[in-house]
Design a binder for these strands. Structure first.
Lengths: 220, 220
DNA sequence: ACAAAAGTGTTTACCTTACACCCATGA
DNA sequence: TCATGGGTGTAAGGTAAACACTTTTGT
């Protein structure tokens, strides 16, 4: 039994960081630091005594992964008393969406201090972290239908086909190209740039930009 | 400063109990028991060390209001450090829907230990309880659109017009009678009973029954 | 020239909305 | 008989779904 610490509460935050890699939805995990349990876990940690929950989530995320300033939203609070072995810890789960990993996050990844896993191929995780990821994935998929949340995955400029691949990866289904483009453009949240992506040996794709970056619109 | 108690965590549950009264959406509040602050507050209290969050919500709800076995769903966790004056308390908010107040709840109400307030005319409440009620109301209104959650307000048998009034009270808008009936019956969650409500001096209303009571269907 | 992804409209089916009159009862 | 809420159908508009070929580039 660990003695309870003074500065922190028996409450922690855990963050499900989603990002796209190779057209697949990935989750960022960190290796368990616990002697008892060396399983992969979600980045997170205890809430300090004088700290907003959101701040705690951001701070612990930054410490564990180097990420900051990302889209972060509270998901659900998990508090089964049997979920932790050593002491009762209630965790307020968040999810985060990042378009590209920051340099410091990339560094953490190269040193093995963090690693991406496709949601379809997650390792065995600490405690109930699999349930947390599952719920986060559900929330994300649901929000695709009535918000512009998917834009959080996109870089400054991107082709519509890239956005479509994001939708398809999250929903797990193929979408019709024409209907998808119509629907997205009708939202009036993107604008054309004069530029094109000249990638492969095929016609270059028009690049679009988000009209109000950082803002997630809810409609309906 | 109160000394922290051993058996409980610095985490509480608060429950927004919604019920219909006189075609208005009401919230059940209890009088603040605190010497410092005698404002009305949401029923709730601390989470015990070995207790599920849901159990804590249910237990505290029963203690404060006599209600049990009601529809209860986690809403959001509020944890601004400045939200409480004496000590840092994080609260996991829930909302509950009840069709009619149970006898024990009615008793608590008659003794002044609990009282209903219309959401449109709430008193000044403890701490951030107004924000909690606001968020609960939003969630409830949103869920009307894609679930059968409103049925939780209804008694065993009820006329369709009664259900319509529930929708109207929650959404704050009038609905077309014919379209409403079509839409609800198309959900295939109600069945006719042979009975009618003979109330006023007008044609009696057909009574309906919920096919699978206690089950909230999510569609779309 | 060919492979590979980009880009583009129309038709159909379905769902949502608007809307007005008769019915059964109690007073 | 009259006031009150209960009960019913249809037409129009809008949204979502299905569907195939041409364009532009790199090799």
């Amino acid at each position: 039994m660990n003695a309870p610490q003074k500065d922190v509460l028996p409450v922690s935050t855990d963050v499900v960081v989603f990002t796209m890699r190779e057209d697949c939805l990935n989750v960022l995990l960190v290796p368990g630091d616990n002697r008892v349990n060396r399983r992969w876990r979600l980045p997170g940690g205890p809430v300090r005594h004088c700290e907003h929950l959101d701040q705690a989530a951001e701070r612990n995320l930054q410490r564990d992964t180097g990420l900051s300033g990302v889209f972060l939203e509270q998901l659900y609070t998990f508090g089964a008393p049997e979920r932790d072995l050593e002491q009762r810890i209630i965790t307020v789960a968040y999810y985060a969406l990042v378009s590209a990993l920051s340099p410091s996050a990339t560094k953490q990844m190269s040193t093995g201090a963090a690693r991406l896993f496709p949601v379809s191929d997650l390792p065995t995780m600490l405690l109930d972290h699999d349930a947390i990821v599952g719920r986060a994935h559900c929330r994300l998929a649901a929000k695709l239908e009535y918000s512009t949340i998917a834009l959080q995955f996109m870089p400054n400029r991107f082709p519509l086909s890239g956005l479509q691949r994001v939708y398809e990866a999250i929903l797990g289904t193929a979408l019709d190209k024409r209907n998808f483009r119509k629907r997205i453009l009708a939202l009036d949240c993107l604008e054309e740039t004069p530029d094109f992506a000249r990638n492969g040996r095929h016609r270059p794709a028009r690049l679009y930009r988000i009209k109000t970056p950082g803002r997630v619109e809810i409609f309906k």
